[in-house]
Each structure stands twice: as C-alpha cells, then as structure tokens.
Design a protein around this nucleic acid. Structure first.
Lengths: 105, 105
DNA sequence: ACGCACCGTAAGCATAGACTAACTCAAGCC
DNA sequence: GGCTTGAGTTAGTCTATGCTTACGGTGCGT
C-alpha cells in the first residue's frame, strides 16, 4: 500500500510486463516463469522483486518454491489511474467543444 | 490498429508519464510542457515523439506551435488491457478456490 | 525581407538498469 | 548426513536511452 506510484515504471520493462501477463493467467513458481522467457532465472527473480515492491505481485512459499501471483490491489490501483485519466480527458474534450472561439478540426 | 504494444513502455518513463498527465488536464504546446518540467524543451520533443509513436498523444499545428493532446484511442487500448488483466486475474482466483484440495500431481 | 518565436532533429555523452555467472541458503528426499 | 531442487543475492559488464547543446526549418509579424 502506501505510495507505489512506480507501478507504471515496473510494467514499463517488456520482460516484467511479460512476467505480469504470465501471472495474470495463473500463479506460477519462479522456475516456470523463467522457462517461458528468454532470460535466466536470477533475472526473473530480480524482476519479481521490482514487481513486488511496486505492489503488483505477491508471493507465497510452498515447499522449496515460491508461488507468485497477481496482487489485486496493485492492479486495481492501475485501473483507478486509468479511469481518472479517462475522465479528465473526456472533460477536457467537452470543455474544448464548449469553447468554439477558435476554428479547429 | 497496428501494434502499439509499447504504450506501456512509453508510460514507463517518469518524465513521459508526467507529460501524459499534464496533457490529461488539457492540451498544451511543447513549450508549456517544458516549462512545467525539469527537462529541456528538446527532451520534451523527444518524449512526445515516443508517446505519439505509441498512439498515446496526437498533435495539431496551430500557427508556429504544435498543440499536443491525449489520443483517446491509445488510452482506451490501455484500459482494455487492464480490463483483460482484471478479468483473467479474477478467473484465476475463482479457479483456485474451486480446486481447494489438490492432493498431489 | 528581416527577425523572432516555436519546434524538431542530430550528435554526443553519461547514467540507469537489464542481464549473466557464481555463490549461498533453505527445503525435501534418498 | 549428503544430494538435489528451487530460489534470492552479489558483483560486474554492457547496452539502451534520457538529457543537453547546437543546428535547421517554418510560420508570423513588422
């Protein structure tokens, strides 16, 4: 919680976004993630750390492996951001239409 | 709609996200954007090029300046991505709940 | 025509960060 | 107790890229 505004930065990396999309389908251990990607397992671990710090994923130790899954709160925060952008953008458009003082379009 | 899957990469940079959020409020020329940010005007131009290539902003020349604004299509594509993530995540959770006792494999 | 304001592009640099290799640690199994 | 498997950490390298400076181009006003 708190202030992980860097969720966007975290998903900005293509590999991390790929990891995130894999976890969207279903939770997976680290090794399985690495098997689906063209990078080494330590690289996946580092990316998972970033995603976790950004509040986007959670992990749970199961025996000798760690199962990673999507953190719904982080995903919800992203959705909230986009909804805000969407609303503001529409408002700006409406305002532009209601001020026909310039000729455009 | 081509293949602007790099919209996430584009918004991954903090400066570009700041530019995007400024444009969410209202369309602005390049110089005004640069005035609100701690980077030079050419840097803003380069960021705007990336955002435009990602389909996130549009520009329109007005006299000697270019007015940049949010491209609703790009924003909508991002929203669609997140809705898909959200749906899949919920489905994965539901599936996990409906398979409570997984004896072994 | 001249100058100015606004903007995009090129070149060059410097820092961030993504990646691998090697190591350490923990858990389960023989 | 050893061996194996799975994973996080560290050190170090190297590429991508964000930034600035300098330049070229365009539109508008005088």
């Amino acid at each position: 919680m708190t202030y992980q505004s860097d969720a966007w930065t975290a998903l900005g990396d293509p590999t991390r976004k790929a990891i995130f999309e894999l976890l969207v389908d279903r939770p997976r251990p680290v090794g399985e993630l690495a098997g689906e990607l063209p990078v080494s397992r330590p690289a996946v671990s580092q990316h998972l750390k970033v995603l976790k710090d950004a509040g986007l994923v959670m992990d749970q130790p199961v025996g000798t492996r760690r199962i990673y899954r999507i953190n719904p709160d982080g995903l919800a925060a992203l959705r909230a951001d986009l909804e805000r952008f969407w609303g503001k953008t529409l408002a700006a458009y409406k305002e532009a239409v209601e001020q026909p003082t310039r000729e455009d379009e």
